[in-house]
């Protein structure tokens, strides 16, 4: 009696078991094949584990005396924050301006719109390091190059997002203003921007979070900030200093996250 009704084959346990096994085998085999291609031997990791324990022995204890022995370190920390802050600020302003040109409802011409959209799309998929390496040639080594590349990265990250947000604003308030005789710029200032402001502000905070991490990373190449100190310590094999830098980076990112959170809360509370 129980077998009176056939189980649909797509939920039949044996069929699904076979499908799951096949998927598992394919995944494991391809990961194994990729590892072989990269000449990476995972077993080596365990065999050569003494490298790790050696490193840990060399790193311990982290040399946090660095903070008061080495004068440049505080400047480096601040410099990292400064690069992220400045890059985020200018990048966001440029992103909003470009977004106004890229959004269908605010752009003066479709040709401009297409051009800006393409530019934003290219910027979006260009890794920051590519931009940085090119900028290093143009403006020279230093935190400025890294800051500029953060700017450009921010534009790429958020230009399209902002443009899409602008395209989704409610057209009614703007139409009311036009009916009252407002100019195009006035409509943008008094109807469009107020509507996108909350999402822009939220994204700017997010951008700062991303950019702070990138500022650490780009500092390694750009010759600035705590990232550079870390790279320096690592390349001269001062592992105690290296671990100190890692801890400082962790603390820095955590502290900045908290500050940003507090600011965001105040800002949004005020707006409500």
């Amino acid at each position: 009696m129980s077998a009176s009704l056939a189980v649909p084959s797509n939920v039949l346990p044996s069929v699904r078991f076979r499908r799951r096994m096949a998927l598992l085998v394919v995944c494991c085999a391809s990961v194994a094949a990729f590892l072989i291609y990269l000449k990476v031997d995972p077993i080596e990791f365990f065999r050569d584990f003494h490298f790790v324990s050696d490193l840990i022995k060399q790193m311990m204890p982290p040399d946090l005396r660095l903070l008061w022995v080495k004068h440049g370190l505080w400047t480096s920390l601040l410099q990292t924050v400064a690069m992220a802050f400045f890059g985020t600020l200018i990048g966001s302003i440029i992103a909003v301006i470009l977004a106004l040109f890229a959004a269908g409802n605010t752009s003066p011409s479709w040709a401009l719109r297409l051009g800006v959209r393409t530019l934003l799309a290219v910027e979006r998929s260009t890794p920051n390091i590519v931009v940085l390496l090119v900028l290093l040639i143009a403006v020279g080594i230093g935190p400025f190059a890294a800051t500029l590349s953060l700017c450009i990265g921010t534009v790429g990250m958020f230009g399209k997002l902002f443009a899409d947000a602008i395209e989704q604003v409610d057209p009614l308030p703007g139409e009311a203003l036009i009916a009252a005789g407002a100019s195009r710029l006035q409509v943008i200032r008094y109807a469009t921007l107020p509507q996108v402001a909350p999402s822009v502000v939220a994204n700017v905070f997010y951008a700062f979070d991303v950019n702070l991490r990138l500022a650490v990373a780009l500092g390694i190449f750009g010759g600035g900030g705590i990232g550079f100190e870390l790279h320096l310590a690592q390349s001269v094999l001062r592992y105690k200093d290296m671990l100190a830098c890692v801890i400082l980076i962790l603390v820095l990112i955590n502290v900045m996250e908290r500050i940003a959170d507090a600011l965001r809360r105040r800002l949004f509370l005020q707006e409500v």
Partner: peptide, 24 residues
Amino acid sequence: RGLPEIVILLVLVAAFGLGPFAGV
């Protein structure tokens, strides 16, 4: 999450040397 990958990479390179293994 707090550490950028590159920081992790630099530490791993110190242990395992340069190469794709540290990157992976």
